[in-house]
Design a protein around this nucleic acid. Structure first.
Lengths: 339, 339
DNA sequence: TTGTACGCGTTATCAT
DNA sequence: ATGATAACGCGTACAA
């Protein structure tokens, strides 16, 4: 009897070795029975399960990950979560990953790319098997680190021909163009832009502006609001817009939340939407469809975005070859009452 | 020279040993310089930092956690995240933890306590240093496991004299009583309850019902809606209520989102709020204050809830003795236009 | 099908 | 202030 630890303390968690002793097997056989039962005799598996039950064994994935070099952990970095646009995607990622045996390490990094880089540096010490990044603008040092670590990466919520690794998103520029084209087609000419300053919103705005400027006889004014976009900011921004240019006939907002605020502010000033003023949002959040008036907006499949990102990651980690590492999920216009 | 690995591959991540070699020190000294610089001579620390820079070293917390038995990981279990009530709290937890050097493992467990138990079982294999649980109703087996693991636990969003370990929340029952008392005081007598079926909402409802039943000359009808609560469900539920009892004079909703839907539905039927019908919500979500009419509701400090939970956990993990493991954060009425 | 020897990268502990 | 050695608990690789 080698003078090994005598696990007589009630507080010490049982290990594989304890289970093995209980079952009269070697630790390795227990490990196999737990992780790959197919290659173990069924009766042996049963014996193991019994011993697991008896000992109350819980695997230690720190040890397992260290030995196998697979942590079954996915890091997800988002700029914020108290933003209705992101939560569905996060939940989809979490659900999809859980089904495949992964856990999600969620980090809120803000909209600053240096902060993100610092954050990811600490994340990497968890040795995640993969990482989900929001957007396509990252600090060069971060990109280098990720490529160097040969870590599967999915960038989401945006499009670029040159992703770090994989990508699933849609074209914000096209969303902007579509919104502007739609309103121009409806005959609106005097535009107000109510916009937040995050990177992706700015690209949508560029799309809007490009489209408007290529059209003669129309003009626009713009009001910027802070992050996160709230209904309050929508109302305040709308007030500022109307003060600046009372003759506006259409408002494009960078999100449905702002649009809702804008509509309310208009109504509170006795301006009827859409009769006197059209308002358009982005996101097709839950309330957009049943608001009064219902909000015309552009929808994307936030849930699917998360599903695909998680699936792509898990597939790549598990060695499947991806048909297409770049996915454009597209978007669609929701024509409703407000515009 | 023992025939140890020759790290000539470019793809192999550098380890403490590599850094030590580069700096001409032992791995242990490097480890100390990184984790506890105070006990290492400043010049030595500088040498280590240089070597870290040169090698691009990233610590491996799987190994570190295994050796030190501290993972610097906190597991957080919530029923859903696409619920505006929870996201602020989650973000607060994440932020607070990040500041103290912890990462957050976020799991969405649904409203089913057996599912939660299964989920936590897998979580425990990550050896988190602590865990945040939503609510106070958990499977007995889960409680036993947690107590057995001697893991610091904070239950949030609810109150009980007998938490598993620590707790920060508020009394849903009192919220319900306050809401009902307020409306009774305003003279309303014919109540409609628009309610979801999650555990905490049901306790609030019980508070409402108790208060109403102790008051002569008033009555109520009730409509149940599913989870998650959306504005759509608010509108549909309101429609059902009005169909059942057109003479209602006040509606109490289990959340602001439902209240918003209820108000809209009323307006769309030509019923003016609050002149003909009062509507009250719960949560004081962003839009409640600037809606038209602004929504009377009950607020709680969701952000602080998360901060306190995270701080309590980190304090306990780091050996500080807590003054009070039970925190009642309370709540307050927001009297606005809708009721 | 099952077992043995060893290494994963770090920290605790004791020694210097 | 720094170093040597032995865990930490598991999986890989190979042997039986």
């Amino acid at each position: 009897m080698k003078s090994k630890k005598m696990k007589s303390e009630g507080t010490v968690a049982p290990t594989l070795e304890d289970v093995a002793r209980e079952a009269g097997l070697s630790p390795m056989t227990v490990s196999r029975a737990l992780n790959n039962p197919k290659i173990v005799r069924p009766m042996t598996v049963a014996r193991v399960m019994l011993a697991v039950e008896k000992t109350g064994y819980i695997p230690n994935m720190l040890a397992g990950g260290l030995a196998s070099r697979r942590s079954k952990l996915i890091a997800v970095v988002v700029p914020q979560i108290n933003n209705n646009m992101f939560v569905d995607t996060i939940q989809a990622i979490s659900d999809t990953l859980a089904q495949r045996g992964y856990h999600m390490l969620l980090c809120v990094g803000g909209y600053d790319s240096d902060g993100e880089a610092a954050l990811v540096a600490t994340l990497l010490s968890r040795k995640p098997d993969g990482i989900v990044l929001t957007g396509i603008h990252h600090a060069p040092a971060l990109k280098k680190r990720l490529i160097n670590a040969a870590l599967p990466v999915v960038e989401i919520w945006d499009l670029t021909p040159t992703p770090i690794d994989m990508l699933v998103g849609f074209s914000h520029e096209k969303v902007g163009r579509l919104s502007a084209r739609y309103l121009l087609g409806k005959g609106y000419r005097r535009f107000g832009l109510l916009w937040t300053a995050d990177q992706r919103a700015l690209i949508r705005k560029q799309g809007v502006v490009d489209m408007l400027q290529s059209h003669v006889g129309c003009w626009f004014v713009e009001v910027k609001v802070g992050l996160p976009a709230t209904m309050r900011l929508g109302r305040d921004g709308m007030q500022a817009l109307l003060a600046r240019a009372p003759e506006l006939d259409a408002i494009i907002c960078s999100s449905d939340t702002l649009a809702q605020g804008a509509i309310l502010e208009a109504q509170s000033q006795g301006i009827s939407v859409p009769q006197q003023l059209a308002v358009m949002g982005f996101g097709d959040l839950d309330f957009a469809a049943c608001h009064l008036p219902s909000i015309t907006t552009v929808a994307i499949d936030r849930w699917r975005l998360g599903q695909e990102a998680a699936t792509m990651l898990a597939d790549k980690i598990e060695g499947m070859t991806l048909s297409e590492p770049l996915r454009d999920l597209g978007f669609w216009l929701c024509e409703r009452q407000s515009a």
